[in-house]
Nucleic acid binder design. Structure first.
Lengths: 317, 317
DNA sequence: TTGTAAGCGTTATCAG
DNA sequence: CTGATAACGCTTACAA
């Protein structure tokens, strides 16, 4: 059905191989012929068949991005950055979430993978990497040949931040993320370390990264003895907590200071504006994808910088 | 490098074709042999090479989703729904934004396409569809063989909504979206029709779907004669407009009512809660993808329902 | 029930 | 500089 190189060759009156050479810009073909071939290709609206190319070349020019869900502002930003890098280098992005991810990896539909989905088993990744495919992990610790990592330095960043909040407010609690999240867990560790460092009492409130849970926790704890400041493990839950605490009559930051993590768009639009830690997710996604592609192209692995961060102090803390 | 069916066949002591039959569950192979083959495959950790399969079968088991950007809550939701449908049917999602989209389509790396990116030319789509690949458009009017559409019924929905607001408030204006957006344009048309229908004066404020622009417009128009209600073409800009108008001393909805479109998560968390039109984007994405896949599998085209919507009245209007 | 062999559309090796 | 031809890994008539 679709036009093949064979038809192009026939129209241009050359052999298939010459057509291939001409189309792929190989030097061993006269200008006259090349022109004739390209003309024929254009005329027939020829486009090389990707599957055949892949089969022959063992390259798919695609990278797999495996995430555990599309929702939330963070993934969008990361994907945006990755898409940009892919675009620059001529790679496709195969984005997948869920049970099919394993298949995509196992069947080698991609030249490399970026993993942000803890449900993919280590073993699958190790096998893939062993077969000489590069893998970059964004959400776990795992090492081996062809396996690289780029993770937020949660522990250190939160440690610093809690120390600063402690200096400013005296006591500080934490609204956690879900206990099965890599990032959430490490933010808790950073908190605990800082609290220990300052010799303070720890206040731990269990959250799950959602606005709704932030609201609920706020309502539940409003009548208990609270710390002077609460660090929330992400912005959404911080905004929720802030909302319900204000509803209960707390003034922020006068009665209690609230801070978040991520610097999502809405943090600068809520009242009071939220103090938080900015992670440049788009830049991160870009760097990670670029690095993977570089590895693919050069064989050398471009060091991935840690995602950049920065404390953003606004009105809420 | 990777294990091929050849090696599986050798280990199982059968011919390549028998191995293929066994692996693909064809009936013409004895149980004993099938078992032996599968055992060998497992032992070698065999996974069929996707490219070879595609080349032979002319099917890639992938559908392309072309969007004009990853940012914004709407795409995430749509993608979530599409991913779900793809998962159910064993298809991959190739998500792309930008210049590479044409290539993916032209090279037939996908079995069908969903388009939400007005930068892709009609011609590319028409050629693709002509070659017997189904295409579903989410953002434009275009018809032809194998071309289907599923678009929000913006005009009708907004027409209804404006009529309701007019009945309730007497006069109503619109904060538009960008003029190059399919949806934004039709929302304006719906507005104009309703205004005409009610014989009212029209108040048109130019926006661009962003919160920031909503803020700016609010600041700029606060001192002018305003309608009693303003319908904003999406929620983000509505929240922005509401913010700056409140800052200028307007009470909402007592002095001016504000409404949005989309029902993004934040609408129920702002104060006052935003009246808006809910579109179930996840369900929409799911239905669209499911429908495309059905077409691929059965050849018949499953009718796609229009995206479901519903007016959600909250405090702001 | 099993095996042989052709062919999918390319690229690349090797002669001419 | 150009053209046969094998090969990539798989599926599928067709033969046995």
């Amino acid at each position: 059905m679709a036009v093949t190189i064979k038809e192009v060759a026939k129209l241009a009156n050359v052999s298939i191989s010459t057509a291939s050479y001409a189309i792929n810009g190989k030097p061993n073909v006269s200008d006259k012929l090349r022109e004739r071939v390209l003309e024929a290709a254009k005329q027939l609206n020829y486009h090389p068949n990707a599957a055949a190319k892949h089969l022959k070349s063992k390259k798919t020019m695609s990278i797999g991005v495996f995430i555990y869900g599309f929702s939330g502002p963070v993934f969008s930003e990361i994907l945006e950055g990755m898409n940009q890098a892919a675009l620059e280098e001529g790679y496709n992005l195969i984005v997948s979430s869920g049970a099919l991810s394993d298949k995509i990896i196992n069947q080698r539909q991609i030249d490399g993978a970026i993993i942000f989905d803890s449900s993919i088993e280590d073993e699958v990744l190790i096998n893939f990497a062993k077969a000489n495919y590069p893998v970059i992990l964004l959400d776990r610790d795992l090492s081996g040949k062809n396996i690289y990592r780029s993770v937020i330095n949660n522990e250190e960043i939160v440690y610093q931040f809690i120390n600063e909040l402690a200096d400013k407010y005296g006591s500080v609690g934490i609204l956690t993320g879900p206990r099965d999240s890599y990032n959430a867990l490490r933010r808790i560790t950073g908190y605990e370390k800082a609290i220990k460092n300052k010799g303070l009492k720890s206040y731990i409130y269990e959250g799950d990264f959602t606005y709704k849970r932030g609201l609920e926790v706020g309502a539940k704890i409003a009548n208990t003895k609270l710390p002077r400041a609460i660090f929330c493990s992400n912005d959404e839950s911080a905004i929720g907590l802030m909302g319900s605490l204000m509803e209960k009559g707390y003034r922020i930051p006068e009665d209690i200071a609230i801070a978040g993590f991520d610097n999502i768009m809405w943090t600068k639009y809520v009242i009071p504006k939220l103090t938080t830690i900015e992670i440049d997710h788009t830049a991160w996604g870009h760097d990670v994808a670029k690095s993977l592609i570089n590895n693919l192209q050069e064989g050398t692995f471009l060091k991935i910088d840690e995602p950049k961060y920065q404390m953003v102090y606004r009105a809420s803390a």
